[in-house]
Nucleic acid binder design. Structure first.
Length: 364
DNA sequence: ACTGTATTTCCTGCTT
DNA sequence: AAAGCAGGAAATACAG
């Protein structure tokens, strides 16, 4: 029930971390000046504490929110607003998100680069959380037992889902389920109060995780990373990363319908793992800290995490076995340290970062 | 074109 | 017996 709210909060917190509270006050006088254009007036209450764009995906920003966000950065950077061609600022968030860096530079001058960077920081945050959305959707759908034939990968259901995705113009933003744009009545998309329905088997008992059927996750493998969307199709002739798989008949059938996939660089496995751990309200049941201070953590639902990683990399055949091999490579690089004798338990090493409580708090 | 990185995939053997 | 761990080997996409 509280799922969508929780994600909204998470997103809001992310943005809060990016924009420190004391700086988050948009300059009222500037806003008033900018707001003279017809439909750009800002609701006063939205600027009283947090800007109107706070906690909402850029894709869904209204023209006013876009303007407010721009104003915030004008003020923050002490930029001479007279150099800006305000006639070009009358755009909503969706339009803004599709502006190239050059376009923004054209409109905002040198500030355009800053705006482009900041905007894509926010967008990348939403992209980082894609897996959470996917998971929530998956959990919810499985709870509704819609995909009873997951073992066989019911193609009709798959297709209808894909169609559902493609007809949703905001699907690629991946937050369409959680933003305010979602109708309150659609709470069935969200999950139970635990963030995820807790599997009775997900207890801390040696990692025997009964996960949803991997094929079920396949059905939901989303194409995150809107920027790379089109490139995938162009490159469909390329082979998949890694050693070629030995094809069993089962695998052949599975792969025949699989899209070409490779993931853009940017998020490493250990960062992905770290990010799961940093969101306890969402990762409940997937992973947990064993010793927060020391960076010791444990997989509770190893296969589910592997599937999520696979989803992120557009690789539906990811397993914990493969994921764990990649994890073991981190020992040598001291990104992870060995924890002997404890199954599914790892520890962050000195070459990892961003997981310590101080680092998380100072994240800016 | 080449090289290094970061996986991905498969494998054998061992441990829990 | 099954699951997980360890680590070698090979393959690959991608960035520089």
């Amino acid at each position: 029930m509280a799922g969508s709210c929780e994600i909204s909060n998470i997103f809001s917190n992310y943005i809060s971390a990016m924009y420190q509270p004391e700086e988050a006050q948009p300059p009222m006088e500037l806003l008033a000046h900018l707001g003279k254009e017809d439909n750009l007036a800002l609701p006063a209450e939205t600027t009283a504490e947090k800007p109107a764009w706070f906690g909402e995906l850029p894709y869904f920003w209204s023209k006013a929110q876009v303007l407010e966000w721009i104003s915030y950065h004008v003020e923050k950077n002490k930029y001479d607003a007279s150099a800006i061609n305000f006639s070009c600022c009358n755009m909503d968030g969706y339009t803004l998100c599709h502006c190239t860096q050059e376009q923004l530079r054209l409109i905002f001058g040198p500030l355009g680069d800053e705006l482009y960077t900041r905007l894509h920081e926010i967008v990348s945050v939403s992209d980082e959380l894609t897996w959470i959305i996917d998971l929530l959707e998956k959990e919810d759908m499985s709870s509704q037992e819609i995909f009873q034939d997951s073992e066989l990968g019911n193609s009709c259901t798959k297709e209808s889902l894909e169609e559902m995705k493609s007809t949703n113009p905001f699907y690629q933003a991946d937050f369409s389920y959680v933003s305010g744009a979602l109708s309150p009545g659609s709470s069935d998309i969200s999950v139970s109060g635990t963030g995820m329905s807790h599997s009775p088997n997900s207890q801390d008992s040696g990692g025997s995780d009964i996960d949803p059927d991997p094929t079920e996750v396949k059905l939901f493998s989303s194409d995150d990373g809107f920027a790379d969307y089109d490139k995938e199709d162009v490159k469909h002739g390329k082979r998949k990363r890694g050693r070629p798989r030995k094809f069993s008949k089962e695998n052949r059938d599975c792969l025949e319908t699989k899209k070409s996939k490779h993931s853009p660089r940017g998020t490493h496995l250990w960062e992905f793992i770290r990010d799961i751990l940093l969101h306890p309200e969402l990762n409940e049941g997937l992973m947990k800290w064993e010793d927060r201070r020391e960076g010791v953590f444990k997989f509770l639902r190893s296969e589910a995490v592997a599937q999520l990683w696979g989803q992120k990399k557009k690789n539906s055949s990811m397993t914990y076995e493969k994921l764990s091999r990649a994890m073991r490579y981190y020992y040598k690089r001291e990104i992870l340290e060995r924890v002997d004798g404890r199954r599914l338990v790892y520890k962050f090493g000195k070459n990892s970062s961003g997981w310590k409580e101080e680092e998380v708090l100072n994240r800016n």
